[in-house]
Amino acid sequence: MMTSFTESLTTALQLVSALDSTLVTIVARSLGVSALACALACGVGLPLGAWLGVARFPGRALVLTFLNTLLAVPSVVVGLVVYLLLSSSGPLGSLGWLFSFKAMVFAQSLLVLPVVTALTRQVVEDAANHHGEQLQSLGAGTLLRAGLLASDERYALLTVVIAAFGRAISEVGAVMIVGGNIEGFTRVMTTAIALETSKGDLPLALGLGMILLSVVLVLNALIALIRLWREQEPVGCAAPPGLEMRT
């Protein structure tokens, strides 16, 4: 068993180092789907989350509870819902997106939308509790406050974006259901790993696994760098006496 693993690992390393065309295509497709899905989810989730962080309305607690519940929805459930929407008898069946790149983007967008919205809401709400009334005092209404606070917390929100991308690229259930794992069309890293493992082609599965891990590693490194960067930058509030930078 150990020999088999070592051999597979060696072959996997050879595939990665040789930039095997099958491997490269799958990785590129994965990155494309997840990046696009993440961009779409952020386009909706960032402003929506920022608004939720500032706005006060009846039923807000209920909305937030529902939003937080969506964080725990399994990706296969999202895949199933999107499948039903896009199937020929579904309300969006006429689009003809099922088993396509677009379907996978759509599914992953829905999957990470609650992540982006909920985390943005938390970041902006914390900022609003801390200094939102100062912007209100200057005359900023709810929307402007949401925008200004989100812009002011841009480094924290960048972490949210990276986390959402990580969630998208590492999921398998949704893209498997709506993409169909069609070779050359909808096969992405996670679905390929599942398939190749079931077929016994461990080197390719391991090679893809290594790349997936590397992507996640790079994302984590980015988050750590941003955190370090933020810690070095002085915060917007006046420092306590003695700690200020005199000029």
Partner: peptide, 20 residues
């Protein structure tokens, strides 16, 4: 404890009239 946005001092002051 005034909170200043992550921008220049001038922009922070200009923000008030702009918001109005």
């Amino acid at each position: 404890r005034p909170h200043m946005l992550r921008t220049s001092a001038l922009n922070n002051v200009a923000m008030g009239p702009w918001l109005r």
